[in-house]
Amino acid sequence: MLIDTSAYIGAWPFGHLPARSAAELGRHLRSHGIARALVSHLGAVFAPDPMPANRTLFAETRRRPALVPVPILNPALAVWSEHLDECCRLAPALRAVRIAPGYHDFQLDSLRVSALCAALQERRVRLIVNVRFVDLRLDYFALKIQSAGESALHDFLRAHPRLQPLLSGLTLAELRTLQRLGGRFVADIPFVEWLYSIESLVAQGAQTRLMFGSQTPFFVTQANIAKLESALIPASARHAIGWRNAARFFSLPGA
Protein backbone atom coordinates (compact mmCIF):
# COMPACT_ATOMS: atom_id res chain seq x y z
CA MET A 1 0.00 0.00 0.00
CA LEU A 2 1.19 3.50 -0.81
CA ILE A 3 -0.07 6.97 0.01
CA ASP A 4 1.17 9.55 -2.45
CA THR A 5 1.74 13.02 -1.00
CA SER A 6 2.63 14.73 -4.28
CA ALA A 7 0.30 14.14 -7.20
CA TYR A 8 -1.37 16.66 -9.45
CA ILE A 9 -4.16 17.07 -11.93
CA GLY A 10 -4.37 19.70 -14.62
CA ALA A 11 -1.90 20.97 -17.16
CA TRP A 12 1.66 22.22 -16.77
CA PRO A 13 2.53 24.70 -19.47
CA PHE A 14 6.08 23.49 -20.09
CA GLY A 15 6.85 20.07 -21.49
CA HIS A 16 4.54 17.39 -22.79
CA LEU A 17 3.25 16.10 -19.46
CA PRO A 18 -0.08 14.31 -19.19
CA ALA A 19 -2.83 16.74 -18.12
CA ARG A 20 -5.05 14.35 -16.20
CA SER A 21 -8.49 14.79 -14.74
CA ALA A 22 -9.09 13.44 -11.25
CA ALA A 23 -10.72 10.33 -12.71
CA GLU A 24 -7.73 9.70 -14.97
CA LEU A 25 -5.25 10.34 -12.18
CA GLY A 26 -7.15 7.99 -9.88
CA ARG A 27 -7.00 5.20 -12.46
CA HIS A 28 -3.35 5.88 -13.17
CA LEU A 29 -2.32 5.80 -9.51
CA ARG A 30 -4.42 2.71 -8.80
CA SER A 31 -2.68 0.88 -11.62
CA HIS A 32 0.60 1.58 -9.80
CA GLY A 33 -0.64 0.32 -6.44
CA ILE A 34 -1.15 3.79 -4.95
CA ALA A 35 -4.20 3.57 -2.73
CA ARG A 36 -4.51 7.21 -1.80
CA ALA A 37 -3.06 10.50 -2.93
CA LEU A 38 -2.97 14.11 -1.86
CA VAL A 39 -3.84 15.93 -5.04
CA SER A 40 -3.51 19.54 -6.13
CA HIS A 41 -4.47 21.27 -9.36
CA LEU A 42 -1.58 22.64 -11.39
CA GLY A 43 -3.85 25.33 -12.81
CA ALA A 44 -3.50 27.11 -9.46
CA VAL A 45 0.25 27.59 -9.86
CA PHE A 46 0.42 30.07 -12.72
CA ALA A 47 -3.08 31.53 -12.69
CA PRO A 48 -3.45 35.00 -11.14
CA ASP A 49 -6.27 33.62 -8.99
CA PRO A 50 -5.83 30.02 -7.80
CA MET A 51 -9.46 29.48 -6.85
CA PRO A 52 -10.95 28.49 -10.22
CA ALA A 53 -8.47 25.59 -10.34
CA ASN A 54 -9.09 24.78 -6.66
CA ARG A 55 -12.85 24.69 -7.25
CA THR A 56 -12.32 22.29 -10.13
CA LEU A 57 -10.14 20.17 -7.84
CA PHE A 58 -12.84 19.98 -5.15
CA ALA A 59 -15.55 19.23 -7.70
CA GLU A 60 -13.59 16.48 -9.41
CA THR A 61 -12.44 14.77 -6.22
CA ARG A 62 -15.75 15.01 -4.33
CA ARG A 63 -16.79 11.44 -5.04
CA ARG A 64 -13.30 10.00 -5.11
CA PRO A 65 -12.21 9.20 -1.57
CA ALA A 66 -8.87 7.93 -2.83
CA LEU A 67 -7.96 11.47 -3.89
CA VAL A 68 -7.56 13.94 -1.05
CA PRO A 69 -7.87 17.50 -2.38
CA VAL A 70 -5.13 19.92 -1.37
CA PRO A 71 -5.83 23.43 -2.65
CA ILE A 72 -2.97 25.69 -3.58
CA LEU A 73 -3.30 29.10 -1.94
CA ASN A 74 -1.42 32.25 -2.74
CA PRO A 75 -0.71 34.26 0.43
CA ALA A 76 0.46 37.17 -1.70
CA LEU A 77 -3.18 37.84 -2.54
CA ALA A 78 -5.11 40.15 -0.21
CA VAL A 79 -8.00 37.70 -0.18
CA TRP A 80 -6.06 34.61 0.88
CA SER A 81 -8.13 34.21 4.05
CA GLU A 82 -11.37 34.34 2.05
CA HIS A 83 -9.90 31.69 -0.22
CA LEU A 84 -9.07 29.56 2.79
CA ASP A 85 -12.61 30.02 4.12
CA GLU A 86 -14.02 28.93 0.79
CA CYS A 87 -11.76 25.87 0.65
CA CYS A 88 -12.90 24.88 4.13
CA ARG A 89 -16.52 25.29 3.07
CA LEU A 90 -16.00 23.23 -0.08
CA ALA A 91 -14.12 20.54 1.82
CA PRO A 92 -15.17 20.54 5.49
CA ALA A 93 -12.57 17.86 6.25
CA LEU A 94 -9.76 19.77 4.56
CA ARG A 95 -6.47 18.02 5.38
CA ALA A 96 -3.87 20.36 3.94
CA VAL A 97 -3.14 23.47 1.97
CA ARG A 98 -0.23 23.86 -0.41
CA ILE A 99 1.77 27.04 -1.00
CA ALA A 100 4.38 27.61 -3.67
CA PRO A 101 6.96 30.25 -2.80
CA GLY A 102 8.97 31.07 -5.88
CA TYR A 103 5.93 30.59 -8.09
CA HIS A 104 3.76 33.03 -6.20
CA ASP A 105 4.95 36.46 -5.24
CA PHE A 106 5.64 36.14 -1.51
CA GLN A 107 8.45 35.33 0.87
CA LEU A 108 8.16 32.75 3.62
CA ASP A 109 8.88 35.42 6.23
CA SER A 110 6.03 37.68 5.13
CA LEU A 111 3.30 38.69 7.54
CA ARG A 112 0.65 37.11 5.37
CA VAL A 113 2.41 33.74 5.46
CA SER A 114 2.59 34.00 9.25
CA ALA A 115 -1.11 34.79 9.36
CA LEU A 116 -1.86 31.85 7.07
CA CYS A 117 0.19 29.53 9.29
CA ALA A 118 -1.73 30.71 12.36
CA ALA A 119 -5.06 30.23 10.60
CA LEU A 120 -4.11 26.73 9.48
CA GLN A 121 -2.98 25.73 12.97
CA GLU A 122 -6.23 27.03 14.40
CA ARG A 123 -8.20 24.96 11.89
CA ARG A 124 -5.90 21.94 12.27
CA VAL A 125 -5.09 21.97 8.59
CA ARG A 126 -1.59 20.93 7.53
CA LEU A 127 0.66 23.11 5.41
CA ILE A 128 2.64 21.78 2.45
CA VAL A 129 5.38 24.04 1.15
CA ASN A 130 6.39 23.23 -2.42
CA VAL A 131 10.08 23.95 -2.64
CA ARG A 132 9.98 23.03 -6.33
CA PHE A 133 7.72 21.25 -8.79
CA VAL A 134 10.44 20.51 -11.34
CA ASP A 135 14.21 20.53 -11.62
CA LEU A 136 14.65 24.28 -11.87
CA ARG A 137 17.95 23.87 -13.71
CA LEU A 138 15.93 22.48 -16.58
CA ASP A 139 12.91 24.73 -16.39
CA TYR A 140 11.67 26.67 -19.39
CA PHE A 141 14.55 28.94 -20.34
CA ALA A 142 12.64 32.21 -19.96
CA LEU A 143 11.46 31.44 -16.42
CA LYS A 144 13.41 32.87 -13.51
CA ILE A 145 11.86 30.89 -10.69
CA GLN A 146 14.00 30.21 -7.65
CA SER A 147 13.30 27.58 -5.05
CA ALA A 148 12.93 28.58 -1.42
CA GLY A 149 16.50 28.29 -0.18
CA GLU A 150 17.67 26.24 2.80
CA SER A 151 18.25 29.34 4.86
CA ALA A 152 14.75 30.75 4.20
CA LEU A 153 13.24 27.36 5.00
CA HIS A 154 15.25 27.08 8.20
CA ASP A 155 14.19 30.58 9.28
CA PHE A 156 10.60 29.67 8.46
CA LEU A 157 10.76 26.51 10.59
CA ARG A 158 12.27 28.50 13.46
CA ALA A 159 9.59 31.16 13.19
CA HIS A 160 6.85 28.51 13.35
CA PRO A 161 8.17 25.85 15.74
CA ARG A 162 4.80 24.14 16.20
CA LEU A 163 3.72 24.14 12.57
CA GLN A 164 5.60 21.08 11.24
CA PRO A 165 5.00 21.60 7.52
CA LEU A 166 5.56 19.04 4.79
CA LEU A 167 8.41 20.38 2.67
CA SER A 168 7.74 19.03 -0.78
CA GLY A 169 10.50 18.72 -3.34
CA LEU A 170 13.61 18.92 -1.15
CA THR A 171 16.77 17.48 -2.63
CA LEU A 172 18.85 15.08 -0.57
CA ALA A 173 21.39 17.83 0.18
CA GLU A 174 18.68 20.26 1.30
CA LEU A 175 17.04 17.61 3.44
CA ARG A 176 20.32 16.77 5.15
CA THR A 177 21.09 20.44 5.76
CA LEU A 178 17.68 21.11 7.29
CA GLN A 179 17.97 17.97 9.42
CA ARG A 180 21.31 19.15 10.70
CA LEU A 181 20.01 22.62 11.44
CA GLY A 182 17.02 21.21 13.31
CA GLY A 183 13.37 22.17 13.14
CA ARG A 184 10.10 20.30 12.92
CA PHE A 185 9.23 19.29 9.40
CA VAL A 186 8.42 16.28 7.29
CA ALA A 187 9.48 15.79 3.69
CA ASP A 188 8.55 13.83 0.59
CA ILE A 189 11.01 11.84 -1.50
CA PRO A 190 10.60 12.60 -5.23
CA PHE A 191 13.65 14.88 -5.43
CA VAL A 192 15.68 12.95 -2.84
CA GLU A 193 18.17 11.14 -4.97
CA TRP A 194 21.65 9.67 -4.70
CA LEU A 195 22.85 6.10 -4.62
CA TYR A 196 21.38 4.51 -1.45
CA SER A 197 19.66 7.80 -0.48
CA ILE A 198 16.65 6.31 1.31
CA GLU A 199 18.83 3.73 3.01
CA SER A 200 21.23 6.35 4.32
CA LEU A 201 18.41 8.59 5.54
CA VAL A 202 16.76 5.70 7.35
CA ALA A 203 20.10 4.81 8.92
CA GLN A 204 20.15 8.36 10.30
CA GLY A 205 16.67 7.89 11.76
CA ALA A 206 14.81 9.97 9.20
CA GLN A 207 12.09 7.40 8.48
CA THR A 208 9.71 9.22 10.83
CA ARG A 209 9.82 12.36 8.70
CA LEU A 210 9.83 10.93 5.17
CA MET A 211 6.77 10.33 3.02
CA PHE A 212 6.34 8.73 -0.35
CA GLY A 213 5.56 11.04 -3.25
CA SER A 214 5.46 10.12 -6.90
CA GLN A 215 5.49 13.66 -8.33
CA THR A 216 2.98 12.55 -10.93
CA PRO A 217 2.65 13.81 -13.67
CA PHE A 218 6.08 15.47 -13.66
CA PHE A 219 7.94 12.22 -13.06
CA VAL A 220 7.43 8.69 -14.30
CA THR A 221 5.26 7.32 -11.50
CA GLN A 222 7.05 3.99 -11.42
CA ALA A 223 10.42 5.65 -10.77
CA ASN A 224 9.83 6.79 -7.20
CA ILE A 225 7.93 3.62 -6.35
CA ALA A 226 11.04 1.71 -7.43
CA LYS A 227 13.20 3.99 -5.28
CA LEU A 228 11.29 3.03 -2.16
CA GLU A 229 10.77 -0.61 -3.04
CA SER A 230 14.43 -1.22 -3.86
CA ALA A 231 15.84 0.48 -0.76
CA LEU A 232 17.45 -1.99 1.61
CA ILE A 233 15.56 -0.86 4.70
CA PRO A 234 13.48 -2.67 7.31
CA ALA A 235 9.87 -3.36 6.37
CA SER A 236 8.71 -1.10 9.18
CA ALA A 237 10.61 1.83 7.67
CA ARG A 238 9.25 1.05 4.20
CA HIS A 239 5.70 1.04 5.56
CA ALA A 240 6.32 4.25 7.49
CA ILE A 241 7.60 6.07 4.42
CA GLY A 242 5.20 4.38 2.03
CA TRP A 243 1.98 5.22 3.87
CA ARG A 244 1.96 5.17 7.67
CA ASN A 245 3.59 8.57 8.22
CA ALA A 246 1.25 10.25 5.75
CA ALA A 247 -1.82 8.53 7.17
CA ARG A 248 -0.94 9.72 10.64
CA PHE A 249 0.28 13.18 9.67
CA PHE A 250 -2.80 14.02 7.60
CA SER A 251 -5.20 12.02 9.82
CA LEU A 252 -6.47 10.12 6.81
CA PRO A 253 -9.46 8.03 7.84
CA GLY A 254 -9.41 4.37 6.95
CA ALA A 255 -5.72 4.36 6.03
Binding site: E193, Y196, V220, A223, A226, S230
Partner: peptide
Amino acid sequence: IREPAVTLGR
Protein backbone atom coordinates in the same frame (compact mmCIF):
# COMPACT_ATOMS: atom_id res chain seq x y z
CA ILE B 1 24.33 10.89 -8.56
CA ARG B 2 21.17 9.03 -9.50
CA GLU B 3 19.49 5.99 -8.01
CA PRO B 4 19.63 3.05 -10.42
CA ALA B 5 16.17 1.92 -9.28
CA VAL B 6 14.82 5.30 -10.37
CA THR B 7 16.68 5.43 -13.66
CA LEU B 8 15.58 1.91 -14.53
CA GLY B 9 12.07 2.67 -13.27
CA ARG B 10 11.77 5.57 -15.66
